[in-house]
Design a protein around this nucleic acid. Sequence first.
DNA 1: CAGCGTAGTCAAAGCGCTTTGGAGTATTTG
DNA 2: CAAATACTCCAAAGCGCTTTGACTACGCTG
Lengths: 365, 365
Amino acid sequence: MNFQSALINFPLMNLKQLAQNLGLSQTTVSRALNGYPEVSEATRRKVREAAEAHNYRPNTRAKSLATGRAMSIGHVVPVSSKHEMVNPIFSDFISGAGEEYARAGYDLLLSVVADSDHERVYRDIATRQIVDGLIVHAPTLTDSRIPILQGLDIPFVVHGRSSGITSPYNWLDVNNRRAFERATGLLLDLGHRRIALLNGLASMDFAHRRCDGYKRALLDRNIPIDPDLIAHDEMTENYGYEAARRMMSAVDRPTAFVVSSIIPAIGVRRAILDAGLVFGRDVSIVIHDDDLSYFRNAGDVPLFTAVRSSVRQAGQRAAAMLLEIIRRRDEGHGSDAPVQFLMEAELTIGQSTGPLVTTVPNARA
Amino acid sequence: MNFQSALINFPLMNLKQLAQNLGLSQTTVSRALNGYPEVSEATRRKVREAAEAHNYRPNTRAKSLATGRAMSIGHVVPVSSKHEMVNPIFSDFISGAGEEYARAGYDLLLSVVADSDHERVYRDIATRQIVDGLIVHAPTLTDSRIPILQGLDIPFVVHGRSSGITSPYNWLDVNNRRAFERATGLLLDLGHRRIALLNGLASMDFAHRRCDGYKRALLDRNIPIDPDLIAHDEMTENYGYEAARRMMSAVDRPTAFVVSSIIPAIGVRRAILDAGLVFGRDVSIVIHDDDLSYFRNAGDVPLFTAVRSSVRQAGQRAAAMLLEIIRRRDEGHGSDAPVQFLMEAELTIGQSTGPLVTTVPNARA
DNA sequence: CAGCGTAGTCAAAGCGCTTTGGAGTATTTG
DNA sequence: CAAATACTCCAAAGCGCTTTGACTACGCTG
C-alpha cells in the first residue's frame, strides 16, 4: 500500500461498530440515519457527524435483505446472437433511465444477453429477487417474456409493445404507426411514388408497426406496395448503404426512402452520393430520429427530415413509470390498472427532402 | 390475474420451505445444490429435482450477505454533464464485458453519472459493498478515482490509463500513442503535410496520448505543429462536420485528417463532400476505429483507412482481468503485482487515403 | 467386542441491517 | 400528588442464506 492511498483509507465501518463508538444502540443509530422521528435532534446530529467522519454507508446487501427491497432495477439488453451487436439506442435509453434511478436511490442491474436466452435470464433475475422491477427492451411481435413476468408477479414496464399479447401490461411506446404514416405521407405529398422502406429486424414489434404505417399511407392513395422496396435488418450504417445501393440500381429506382434510424440513413446518404445523385433532390429521405446524443440531427435546417422522438426521454419516462408502480405497490395500492404511455413523434423538415424531380436520371449501376 | 399468467405462476420458494418439503435440513439442501461432496448422490438428485420443479433459486441478497460476495461488478459510465451524452463505445465495451460476467455468474451494476459526481459515486458503490469489483471508464489525465479506489481496497481495472498517477494499478489500454504515430506517419508517407487532428475531449488521457503520437510523427519529419489543425471535443458526428468545415475553409486547408473515432469521421466525410471535394483523393482520412458493431468499417476495402482496436474485445479482456484478480484475492494470494495489458491497434487500408494531390483546389467556403 | 473411521445429516450461529414491542425518564395534567 | 403523556432509547427477532461443529449409524479393524 502506498502513501497516497493510505492517506484516504478508511476502515470499513458497520452499524454495530458505529453504535458502539457512539455509545448508542444499533436501533437508535439506524433510526437517526434513516430519519425516523423518535430520535432527538441532538443525537441525530451526533450520529450523522460520526457516520460522516467514519465514512459509514450501510451495507446494501444487508439492508436489502432486511427491508425486502433490492433498490435496484433490472435491464436485460439483447445482443444479437448472430452479430454480437448492441443497439446504440440502449446507451441513450439507459442514460435517461439511469438519471431517474439515481434520483430515487436505485441501482441499475444490466444483463447483456443473447436474445435466444432472454426467457431464462428474465426468469432468473426475477426469482433471485435481485431487483424490484424490470424494463423489457425490444419486444417482438408476440413476446414470451411478458407472460413469464406476469406470472412471476414482478413489476415491469415494456419499452414498446407486443401486438400478440392481449392481456394488459405496462408499456411506453412511440406511436410508430402514425409516425411512419406521416413520414410516408410527406413524401407522397412531395410527389414521390417509388418510396422505399428500410426498416429494423422483421421480428421486432416496432418494425411491424412502422411497416403498417408505411403501407397504410401508400394504400390510402392507391399506390401498390412493392415488396422489393421494403427491407428489414439490423439497423447498421452498412445495411443502409447496401440496401439503398441495391434498390437504386434497379430500373425503376426509388426516389425516396423512409428509414428507421439515423444510422442506416447515413449509409443511404453514402449510397446516394456514391451514385452521383443529389441528396435531398434526386433522392429524398425521411428518417425516424431517436435523437441519439452522438448523432444530433440538429441545426437550423437539420440534415435529415425526420419524425423524432427522444429515446433518452423514453428511458427517463419508462423508469419513472416503473418506480411509480413499485411505489404504489409498496404502499399496498394493490394491482392497479396497467400504466400505458404513447409518445407522439414530432415532424421536422430538414435538407433531405424535396419535391419529386420529374426526369429521373437512373443511378449508375 | 389472467388465465395465461396463472398457468405459469410459481409461488416464490425459499430454502426453508424447500427443505421442509423434502424432509431435509436447510444445510443438506444448500450443500446438495452447491455441489458439496458430503451429500449422497441419491439425496442430491432428489434435491435438484425438487428445486427444479419448484423453480427455486436462492435469494441473491441473502446469499451475498452470507458469503460476503456480491457476485456483481460495477461500471460507472460518465455522462457528459453539459450534453447529457453517453459515448456509444460503452455499448460495445459493456457487451463484451457482460459476456464474460455472464459466463462467470456475475451481474453487472451500472451507474450512469454526471462526470462531476464520479468520485462520490465510486466511493459510494465501494463502501456500500454492493459489488466485488469495479471498472473505471474514461480516465482523465490525473484521475482522482484511482487513489480513492486504492484507498478503499476494492479490486478495480481501469479501461485506459491515467498519466498523472504514478502508483501502480490494474489497467488495460490501447497503445494510443503508437497508433496515432502510425496513422500520421502513413499520411506523411503519402506526401501530406497539412494534417489535421480531430481528437476527443482534451481532459481525457487517451486524447492526450493520441495527440502525443500525432505530434511525434510530425516532429520526426520536422513538420511544425499548427494548433489551428488540432481540435478537441466530444466525438459526435456534428463535431467532425463542423471542425472539418472550419478547417477546410482556411486558406491553407488540411489535405488530410486523423480522426479519433468513426463517428466524427462520418461528419468529416460529409464536410468533404459538401465542399465538392473528392473523399480519399482531395482529402485523406485515417481514423481510430473502435470496431463498433453498428459501424463496421468492413468490406474488401473498408470505407476508412484505420488503426483498429475492438472496444468490445477490450471489454471482454478487462472483465476477465478483473474476475481473475478477484479470484486470486479470494484465494488469498495477497496483493499481487498489478495486471496491465497493452493492446496494439491494427492498421488497415481503406478508401479514405491516397497520395497528396499536388494542385490543391481550395474548398468552397 | 471395543474402538474407530467414514458417510450422511442436522442444529445453530452468523452475515449487517431494520423493525417490533417495550422500558425508562421527564414533563404535564386532573 | 398520582396518573397520564410524551420523549428517547434499547434488546431481540428476523430477513434467507452459508458454514461450523457435532452427531448418528454403519461397517471395519485388531
